[in-house]
């Protein structure tokens, strides 16, 4: 049974998790994602779940570590400054192969920054979500409906590969309301024989640990994890292609920004410039293959972001010198208007 409802992005993040079987949530208030916590605090006690407000983001993410290490689907949610604090537990979860979901509804930074939408945590999400050699699966929805779909996928893939996963949203997506069809996820939770939830005298004790004092042993662990990352890169890249068939200018944008870009691309075509949009849905693994497919066909790439230029580096890595890669961005919580993006496309189209 599916039903169609009008929902805020933040509420969809929460409801999707519940639909996916995540009934344990550890939160700490921060704008612009607080509705996730509010929604969970209302729903979870009614369905036998746990909403717990932690004393800090550090504590919330470590509660997540504990719950996820004990084998259940669990998540936490925050916004940029809070995510910085959560990176401690994220690194430990990555290092001890614990799957869990972390949501970042991005706001402007650095520091306390602002509370308006931003995509300035791209580097953090894809390069450095904590110390050490590791990656986190990063999904970037662009509609409220896609939030639902990607939350399901994130839980599933996190468990399949035993890695933490992140939904990288932004304040615009979190706050916007759209119709959503709520359908049950197609997949159910994976078996977790490694979980620490009591050996019940039927198996040896399970140890969830990230400490390896012998250098070679730690190297082996990390290398094994990177083999999984290679499999993820081969199988899990996702991107949407919009009007790319005959495109001469490939505008690359993710999340809420892609909505603005699509409007600008359409307008550009009406003005005679063959623009198209590549929208990365996974930010790690980055959909390099999609960029590669077009790098010899288009005249140039244009990365549009709500940052000073972060994802553009991944576009350049994928293009590898085959075409010029331009950048246009606004930051600090300023949302680019379709007109400014259009101007940039038209400039490149001349």
């Amino acid at each position: 049974m599916s039903k169609r409802v009008l929902m805020k992005g933040n509420e969809a993040l929460a409801e999707a998790a519940i639909q996916a079987g995540c009934i344990h949530f550890f939160g700490y208030p921060i704008t612009p994602q607080t509705e996730v916590a509010a929604y969970m605090s209302k729903r979870l006690p009614k369905i036998g779940g746990v909403y717990l407000q932690a004393e800090s983001e550090l504590a919330a993410s470590n509660m997540l570590l504990g719950a996820a290490a004990s084998g259940i689907r669990a998540m936490t949610s925050s916004s940029s400054p809070g995510i910085s604090l959560k990176t401690e537990a994220i690194s430990y979860m990555a290092g001890s192969d614990v799957p869990a979901l972390i949501i970042n509804v991005q706001r402007g930074g650095p520091g306390l920054g602002g509370i308006q939408p931003s995509q300035a945590d791209y580097f953090q999400a894809t390069r450095a979500l904590g110390h050490g050699d590791f990656q986190v699966l990063v999904f970037a929805p662009s509609t409220v409906q896609e939030i639902m779909d990607l939350v399901y996928l994130a839980f599933d893939r996190a468990e399949e590969y035993r890695v933490p996963a992140m939904i990288l949203a932004d304040g615009m997506l979190g706050q916007m309301m759209e119709p959503v069809v709520i359908e049950k996820p197609q997949t159910s939770a994976h078996e977790k024989p490694w979980a620490a939830n009591g050996h019940k005298n039927v198996r040896k004790h399970n140890i969830i640990n990230s400490l390896y004092l012998q250098a070679e042993e730690l190297e082996n662990r990390v290398v094994e994890r990177y083999r999984r990352y290679e499999a993820i890169k081969a199988k899990e890249q996702r991107a949407e292609e919009y009007l790319m068939d005959d495109a001469e200018i490939a505008v690359v944008a993710y999340g809420a920004t892609s909505r603005i870009v699509k409007a600008a691309v359409k307008e550009a075509r009406e003005r005679g410039v063959k623009a198209g949009c590549i929208r990365p849905i996974t930010l790690w693994p980055y959909p390099t293959d999609t960029i590669v497919k077009y790098r010899d066909k288009v005249k140039c790439f244009l990365s549009v972001e709500m940052s000073m230029g972060q994802m553009v580096e991944d576009v350049r890595l994928a293009v590898n010198g085959a075409a010029p890669v331009e950048f246009y961005g606004r930051t600090g919580g300023v949302i680019p208007e379709p007109g400014e993006v259009l101007d940039k496309i038209m400039e490149l189209g001349r």
Partner: peptide, 29 residues
């Protein structure tokens, strides 16, 4: 490595938070 029960290694100082997560998920533990 020394206790025969299931074990989780927490980040520095966070053991009560990790314990909270386990206990809330598994009150029977």
């Amino acid at each position: 490595n020394y206790f025969a029960c299931d074990m989780i290694q927490a980040p520095h100082g966070r053991a009560p938070a990790v314990a909270t997560g386990v206990k809330r998920a598994h009150p029977e533990c």
